[in-house]
Design a protein around this nucleic acid. Structure first.
Lengths: 131, 131, 131, 131
DNA sequence: GTGGTCTAGACCACC
DNA sequence: GTGGTCTAGACCACG
C-alpha cells in the first residue's frame, strides 16, 4: 500500500490512516469496489496496533466510505462515496473558518489562499502518471 | 465579550478560546493594543477555569498574537500580528489537504469549495455594521 | 534519575527541572533517543506535582530538546538538539551581560571570569568516570 | 540619567533598574561617591512606581553598591564596591552553569562563548568616548 | 489587582 | 499505561 504514517505526529494514528485512505480515493488510486488489505495484514505492514486499524476502518464505514463484510473483507463502497449534503458543507465551513481567520490575521491575501486550495485540488485530480 | 464556548464540543476549550480570539482579531473587533479581560474575569464570564484561559493566552502569546504583562494584563500585540511566512503557508497547506481530499471524494465541486472560502473571507472583512 | 530539586529555591521548580535535564544532556548522561520517566513517575520520584513536570517537559519540547509522544512517552530529541543560531547567541549575550557588569563592579578579573567558564565547560565535557 | 527600561520585558522593572545602575558603575559613568537622583525624581523620570525604585535601591544597598542617607540622598558607595569573595564566585558559577550547559547542548564552541564574554568585558571597560 | 507557580485530583483519548 | 485536558483552590511577586 501507499500509506505512510508519521509516528512522531501529534495527529492520532487512526486519523492519519483515515486521511491516507481518503486521499487515496481522491487521487483515484482506490476506486469503488477495490479491496483493502485485511485489518491484520495492514496493521502488520504499518507496524501498528490492530485496534488502530480497526478504528480507522470502522469510522470510515460509518461515513460510508467503506463496507466491511465479515467474509469478503474491506472494500471501498461499491456504490461510490455519498455526495456531500448541506450538513457536510456546513461542517466543512466551520472547519475551514479558523484557518481563514488565522490567515487573515497574518496578512495572507485571499487570492493566495484560494490559489493554494486550487493547487491542492489539482494535486488530487491530475492523472496518476503525471505525478 | 463576544466569546462563546461549546462545552459539549470535542474541541478543547482552550482551542476554542484561541480561535474565538483570533476570529475577533480577523473581524477587527479586537485591534492591536486592545486589552483583554483579566484571566480570572474572563474565566468567570465564560464559566471555565482560570488555567484554561491562561493556556489559551499563553499559546497566543507564543504565536505573537498577544502580549502578557505581569501587571498590566493581556493585550493584542500592539505591533500587529506577524506576517505569514513560507513555513506558515506550508503548514496551512498540509492542514487544508484532508479537507480538500475528503470534499473531492464526496463530489464537492472545486468552485463550490472556493466560493465557500471566499464567503468566509467576506464574513471577516466586511464592516461590523453589515453583519 | 540524577535530578535533584531545591524546594527552598526562589527559582521555579519547573525551571530547575528544565535546567537539570539540559545539564544531563550536556553531560552526555542523556542522549538523543533516550527515554525519560513518565510524567507521573518522575513527579512522584521528585515529590512534586505532575503538572510541574509537564510544564518543564512541554517547554523543553518547544525548544526542541524533547519529543513527547502521547503513548510512547518522552524522549530526548532523536535528531539531536538544534544548533545555536544568531538569535540564540544574541539572547545569550544579553543574559550574560548583567553577570559581567556585576563582576566588573566587584573587581573580578576578566581572566578569572573566563577561567570559571572554562571550568564549567570542562565539567560538562569530561568523561563521566572522571567525575 | 542613561537608564532605559523595557516595560514589555518579562524581567521585573526593579531588576532592570538594578542592572542598569550596576552597568553604569561597570562602565564608569557612575563612580563611588556619585549621587543618584532622589527616589521620587527618578520614579517620575522613568514613569514608574515609587516602590519600584525604592526596592531597587534597597537591594543595591544591601549588596553594598549604594548608601542611602536619610538626608544626603542616595550615593554610590564612596568606599567602592566590595571585592568579590569566594561566596560570590560560587554563586556566579552556579548562575553561569545553565547557560554553559544549554550552549553545549546546542553545539556552541567554548571559544565562541569565551569570545562573547571578552566582548562584553571590552564593552564595559573601554573609554566612554570610544563608544 | 495582575499574572505566575504549585498542588491535588478527576476524566478522557490513544494504543 | 501514556500524555492531554480541565477543575478548584492556594500562595507569591510585582507595581
Amino acid at each position: 500500500m501507499f500509506i505512510q504514517l508519521d509516528l512522531q505526529s501529534k495527529e492520532p494514528l487512526y486519523e492519519q490512516l483515515k486521511n491516507q485512505i481518503v486521499e487515496g480515493i481522491a487521487r483515484g488510486r482506490l476506486k469503488p469496489g477495490d479491496r483493502l488489505p485485511a485489518v491484520r495484514t495492514l496493521a502488520e505492514d504499518l507496524g501498528i496496533n490492530l485496534h488502530t486499524v480497526r478504528k480507522a476502518f470502522q469510522e470510515l464505514q460509518q461515513e460510508n466510505f467503506l463496507l466491511i463484510h465479515r467474509q469478503k473483507g474491506v472494500v471501498i463502497n461499491p456504490e461510490g462515496i455519498p455526495e456531500a449534503d448541506a450538513a457536510y458543507m456546513e461542517i466543512l465551513k466551520e472547519n475551514l473558518r479558523p484557518f481563514v481567520a488565522h490567515s487573515l490575521c497574518r496578512g495572507v491575501d485571499m487570492n493566495d489562499f484560494l490559489n493554494m486550495t486550487k493547487q491542492l485540488f489539482a494535486e488530487y485530480t491530475q492523472k496518476e502518471g503525471e505525478n
